[in-house]
Simulated scan of single mutants.
Amino acid sequence: MPVPEGHPDVFEREWPLRVGDIERTGRLRFDAACRHIQDVGQDHLRELGQEDTHPAWIVRRTMVDLIRPIEFSDILRLRRWCSGTSNRWCEMRVRIDGRKGGLVESEAFWINANKDTGTPARISDDFLRGLQATTDVDRLRWKAYLTAGSRDDALEIRPYPLRVTDIDMWDHMNNSVYWTVIEDYLDRHPELLAGPLRVTIEHDAAVAGGDELEILTHVYPAGSTDKFGADLTDRDVITLTYVVGNDVKAVAALFAL
């Protein structure tokens, strides 16, 4: 979906790519990009005057396409707009451009939550009208794309110790921290960064402070990946399943575009 250029309901911000956002080669990391996606979303809420009325959002899925790396000393241009709605959730696109040609595209499925109960809550009519200004999709439904891998046939099972700084004010691992697992995997498999890469994370339940998180790795070779989509049978798909004991918390998938 291209950016609705010039549309008044496309929210835009710019800021520098800083040292804390890059890995050893200078590339904008996935976890840093997703922190920026969170941050521009909060800025967008504040700009719309909805930060107090809709303060709590739960991300169900984030899909990020690394088209061209954005590298250190660049300026990030973030544009955010709605690409689909229902009365309790929405999908929001964020495109991150670097002035030197780097590009990261993303779409996230956000659930508006009651801040006291954590359950899905209705989006107010005035807010919904604003969201719908950039999309014709008003009956958005949730459909999971990914399936958790099993311990029994995992290629690798790695402990992923949590740090106190990973935990947010709700005693959950912050959304962006899930993406550090992706960076950990890419550091050991840099060949995946040779071309455009899609990474998707779907959340089933929150990882809480004190949990003993483990990551189950599965690699599905080309020809065995039809369950991920008919158009993906010609490439490998890697899944990383986030588990605490026998409980699945999230699933990630990585494949070349």
Rank of each mutant, 00 (worst) to 15 (best):
M1W: 05
P8G: 06
R18V: 15
G20P: 06
I22V: 15
F30A: 11
D31V: 02
C34V: 13
C34D: 07
V40Y: 10
V40K: 10
D43I: 02
D43P: 02
E47A: 14
Q50E: 08
W57Y: 09
V59Q: 11
R60Y: 07
R60I: 08
R61S: 14
V64A: 02
D65S: 10
D65Y: 02
L66P: 09
P69L: 13
I70R: 11
E71H: 07
L76G: 08
R79N: 12
S83P: 05
S83G: 07
S83M: 04
S86Q: 02
R88K: 11
E91C: 04
E91I: 01
G98R: 11
R99Y: 07
G101N: 10
I111A: 11
T117S: 14
S124R: 07
D125K: 11
D126Q: 07
D126E: 14
F127H: 05
D136K: 10
D138Q: 13
R139V: 01
L140K: 08
A148P: 15
G149K: 00
D152L: 15
A154M: 07
P161W: 03
D168G: 03
H172D: 09
H172A: 08
N174C: 00
D187K: 07
R188V: 05
P190W: 08
P196S: 15
L197M: 09
L197W: 05
T200S: 08
E202R: 09
D204F: 09
V207F: 06
G209T: 02
E212T: 07
V219F: 04
G223V: 03
S224Q: 03
T225C: 06
D231P: 00
T233I: 15
D234C: 01
D247P: 00
V248Y: 04
V248S: 07
